[in-house]
Amino acid sequence: MIPVDDYLFLSLALFTIGVIGVLTRRNVIIMLMSIELILNAVNINLMVFSRMWGTVDGQVFAIFIITDAAAEAAVGLGIILAFFHNRETVLADEMDIMKW
């Protein structure tokens, strides 16, 4: 029997790595991918609690989170492409104007 804690630790590890990625990397695409990692860590939690309570509500929430991730990725990548077309960079700290 794998204790719930193990799953939580795994989830925490992935979450932390994701947060570090978002906060420290300059590349927007890596930042977006790190956000995906964070969402994924959340999904693990939802899944393990869903299993713990023996219901599927957690899984339903995970589906919503994945939907959200898809939406976020689509819009985020669209923004990155548009930005790249105009500024030819994918670095976050060069995105320093509101309008172009």
């Binding site: 939907t67 959200d68 939406a71 976020e72 689509a74 819009v75 990548l77 669209g78 923004i79 492409l81």
Partner: peptide, 15 residues
């Protein structure tokens, strides 16, 4: 939300 995201992505990525 997905629909909005789709339209948003199309608008953003459109040249």
């Amino acid at each position: 939300l997905l629909l909005v995201a789709m339209i948003g992505a199309v608008v953003m990525a459109k040249r």
